[in-house]
Every structure is written in C-alpha cells, then in structure tokens.
C-alpha cells in the first residue's frame, strides 16, 4: 500500500495547485501526458460521457428521496396527500419545525442531543482507542500480537445486530439496561477502526521517525500523540466518520436496550412515532420533518471533516 499510495496524491496536488498558479499550463500539460495513449481521444470522450451519465443517474437516485423529504417537510398535513409529492405547495417549513420542537415538551430536541452525544462522544473515544490499539499492533512487537489482531479482525465480521441481544442479557445482569451507558459503552469499540489504524500506521509512520523522537527524549505516549497521531490523521478521520455514521444509524441496539424515551436516539424516537401513524395520523408530519432535520448533523460532520480527510490523505502519503 505504501508503495502505491504516493502516486495518485502527487497528481492531485499538481492539479490542485496548477490552476491557481498558472491556469494554462494545466491544460497544455495534459495532452503531453496523454501522448503515449494517443489513440484515445475519441474513447476518452465516450468514457467521460458514460462516466458522467452513470454518476448523474446515481446522483439523481440518491438525491430524489432527500428532495422528496425536503418537499414533504415543507407541506402542511392536509396538503401532504393532496399535492404533487415532488413539488412545493404552501411553504410551511418553519411552522412544521416549530410544531416538531414544541411537541411533547421538545422531546425531539432531546433525542437529537442524545444522538449527538452517542455518536459524537462514542466516535471520538472509539477513534482514540482504535488509534492506540492499531498503532500498538503496528509498531510494537510482543507475543500474541497476530492472534490479538486476528481476534479483532474476527470482530469486523460479526454484525452489530447479532450482538445486540447478547449485550442486552449481559447488561441485564449488571442492571445497566435502559441507561445512557447501555448504548454508549458498546459504541466505544470499532474493530474496523483498529484494523484501519494498524494498516495505516504501518504504512505512514516510519520507524525512523519514532526512533528519532525517542532519541530526542520523547516518551512513548508523547511520541504517539505528537508525532504518530498527526501522521495517522487521515485514517483517524475516516475511522471517526465511519464510527459516527455507524452509531448514528445504529437503531437495533437502542431498540433492544432502551425503554425510557429520555435516552432515545433520534432514529429510535422517529421509528416509535412512525409505528403509531395508523392510529395517530398527526405523527406522520412529525416523522417527516424530524427525519429531514435528523440528517443535518451527518451532513455537517461530513462537510467539516472531508477537508481534513483529503488534505490528510495527501500529506500522509507524500511523506
């Protein structure tokens, strides 16, 4: 992996900086690079068009439901059934949001905060743990290292859903079900994160650098946090994002663990409301607008972190 990685980012770096510095050069250089494959201009137009088509189709495929959700979120309940589902009627977004956040003393906001706490806190700690574990597995030699790694790797294969019921029974033994911890604690481990951190640490943190840090008198913990973590940032951002999304979307564990709605994450709360729509049709509107608002934190997280992700990828691989 380390041998392959440097090439593509170097290209990216060139493309990124070139337009700013000297716009024409980028365009001039491209045909030169393409010369060995000179037969290809017609092919490249075709492939570009087809690639764009595929991407456009998929973009549409992914965005139409969100568009629908947004449009539905702006409608009053009477217009929801009677108007075009993909276009606006009277714009009631503000009213809908107000109704949602005031319904039953703002229980929805509580759910959102819970989700942010579960996903944000859980992903942060899970990332730190995975980074330490993966780093240790990559950089220290000790007996049982491979066995340990393989056990963790085995953990990747076990779906979280399959663990929910055993976890419930264990937490029952220690009377921790129906608490914040019953959802938070199981979210702190990310076998995939350990795997990724190990692979990435092995590839991006040179032993010589660690050696140099040691020679300069830094302890192992300090070396880890001041040197290695920085080199591992792109992987860690990836781990954080994956874990954040996984916890945010983890619906089954809270469903099994929680009874008190003050601990519900937003997914479970909306699901509970949705299961009542037959008898209490007003809830449908709340479910729709609630679902719309519940994707905002995910979007924000991605927008904020993708920058680190890309920059980091380049930085890590150039070194």
């Amino acid at each position: 992996m380390s041998r392959v990685a440097p090439t593509p980012p170097r290209d990216t770096a060139v493309v990124d900086t070139a337009p700013a510095a000297q716009p024409p050069s980028g365009r001039i250089r491209r045909p030169q690079q393409g010369q060995p494959r000179a037969r290809g201009p017609r092919e490249s137009v075709l492939s570009r068009v087809s690639a764009m088509t595929v991407m456009a189709v998929f973009t549409l495929y992914f965005l139409v439901p969100i568009w629908w959700l947004f449009v539905a979120g702006t409608k009053s309940s009477t217009q929801f059934t009677s108007t075009n589902p993909l276009w606006f009627a009277d714009f009631n977004l503000i009213e809908n949001v107000t109704n949602l956040v005031t319904y039953r003393d703002g229980v929805y906001l509580r759910w959102m905060l819970n989700s942010v706490a579960y996903a944000g806190g859980g992903a942060l700690i899970a990332t730190i743990l995975a980074a330490m574990c993966g780093y240790a597995l990559a950089k220290y030699r000790f007996p049982g290292r491979e066995t340990l790694f393989n056990v963790v790797l085995g953990g990747v294969l076990v779906p979280a859903t399959a663990l929910a019921l055993p976890l419930f029974l264990i937490f029952s033994q220690i009377n921790l079900t129906n608490t914040f911890w019953s959802v938070f604690l199981p979210s702190l481990v990310s076998p995939f994160g350990v795997y990724l951190a190990r692979i990435y640490a092995a590839a991006s943190v040179p032993d010589e650098l660690i050696e140099a840090a040691r020679l300069d008198g830094a302890g192992e913990v300090r070396t880890f946090f001041t040197v290695s973590v920085r080199l591992m940032t792109p992987a860690l951002v990836t781990v954080f994002l994956f874990q954040f999304v996984a916890i945010w979307n983890n619906f089954f564990l809270p469903l099994v663990m929680l009874r008190d709605e003050t601990f519900f994450p937003v997914t479970l709360g909306l699901y509970a409301w949705n299961s009542q729509v037959n008898q209490i049709p007003e809830l449908r509107g709340y479910v729709l607008i609630g679902a719309l608002l519940s994707i905002i934190p995910l979007i924000i997280t991605f927008l904020l972190l993708q920058r680190f992700w890309r920059n980091g990828l380049g930085a890590g691989s150039v070194k």
Binding site: L169, L255, R259, N274, S275
Partner: peptide, 18 residues
Amino acid sequence: VQTGPNGNGGTYQNFFNQ
C-alpha cells in the same frame, strides 16, 4: 412509564427478551 415502538414494531420482542 416506559415506552417504545408499537408491539409488533419491537416492543413485544423486548418483552420476551426482558
């Protein structure tokens, strides 16, 4: 009071687990 989704939506299964 404890709450959750409707019976077949998961609460019955929770009862059995409990």
